[in-house]
């Protein structure tokens, strides 16, 4: 559930981008440049967010009038274990320590739909969070760490729980559009778990960037799932990619190890928050990736 503090869009005076050099961070920089919004990038190698010294850095550079976008996290491809989760929690711990002593005017926190867990149910912002991975738990803990500090410091906060992102420049290689496209182009094959029956929602990175831009402008508060609501099975996704790359792609199935779980999202709240927002269709998103030639 979300509401806007600004009835009309207002350009932020400056944006601090924590996690500026990741897949999403780089896209956000492009967006902020195109909108002529001043920004301050914070990320490795200059600042190690997992180190306590990052608190000092935040205190030094973040001004009370800044809007902060926090996207920094170790994604599952960089580790799904306790160590990765604890590092993710440490990053948020340091940001919260900064907030207890410093100040900013607005926070956009990029969370993940993994906080809900993989269950056969229609998910919406009010659904119980039952993560089934340490990655999901880590993000849920980060949300719960951040929310009370922001509230106590009276700093508006929006938590954006994003579907799995895809798009040019993605290095994560997660099971989905990026890996399938890369594999189709480089190896002429797509490997599926089971027969790829599971349905999932995917979101184009450009849509995430634009939605974050809208949140910044309207100073949106609350929780929103970043989802178009459109889901597709991995088999259909593989077929779509195969047709798009114009090759005879070998779609390989395997013996199923786990029961089929479909994860669908109700997009009503994001529609309500931004009634005129147009989501990029999966077809258009994939075409844009191919046209960009990133994987060639």
């Amino acid at each position: 559930m979300a509401s806007h503090l600004n009835n009309n869009p207002v350009k932020p005076s400056r944006v601090v981008l924590i996690g500026a050099y990741g897949f999403l961070g780089r896209k956000l920089i492009d967006h902020l440049n195109s909108q002529q919004i001043e920004y301050l990038p914070i990320d490795l190698p200059e600042v190690d967010l997992t180190a306590p010294t990052s608190v000092e850095k935040f205190l030094e550079v973040i001004k009370p009038e800044d809007s902060v976008i926090f996207t920094s996290a170790l994604t599952p491809d960089k580790g799904k274990d306790r160590g990765a989760m604890l590092k993710n929690i440490a990053m948020m711990n340091h940001f919260c320590q900064f907030l207890e002593n410093g100040r900013c005017s607005y926070i956009v926190y990029l969370s993940t739909d993994a906080v809900y867990g993989a269950e056969n149910r229609l998910l919406r912002e009010t659904s119980p969070c039952l993560p089934d991975s340490l990655y999901g738990f880590g993000h849920l803990i980060r949300e719960e760490m951040l929310r009370p500090v922001a509230k106590q410091r009276e700093i508006p906060l929006v938590v954006l729980r994003s579907n799995a992102m895809y798009g040019v420049g993605d290095t994560h290689n997660g099971y989905g559009p990026n890996r399938f496209l890369r594999s189709a182009l480089q190896e002429r094959k797509i490997s599926l778990f089971g027969k790829g029956e599971e349905r999932r929602c995917h979101i184009y990175v450009g849509d995430v960037v634009n939605l974050i831009g809208l949140c910044l402008a309207k100073k949106t508060e609350g929780v929103l799932n970043l989802t178009s609501g459109a889901s597709i099975s991995f088999m259909d996704l593989a077929g779509k990619i195969s047709a798009l790359v114009d090759n005879e792609i070998d779609i390989q199935t395997s013996r199923r190890q786990n029961p089929i779980t479909h994860i669908n999202f109700d997009p009503t709240e994001i529609y309500k928050a931004f009634p005129n927002f147009w989501f990029t269709s999966l077809d258009d998103g994939l075409k844009s990736m191919i046209a960009n030639g990133f994987f060639q």
Binding site: G229, D266, P267, T268, Y271, K272, P275, N276, F277, W278, F279
Partner: peptide, 21 residues
């Protein structure tokens, strides 16, 4: 609560996501 938004979702799919204002 979900049903109350049926028309809104359909409007979004058919009109709001396709036409400006």
């Amino acid at each position: 609560a979900y049903r109350k938004d049926w028309v809104f979702r359909k409007l979004h799919e058919t009109i709001l996501s396709k036409y400006q204002d």
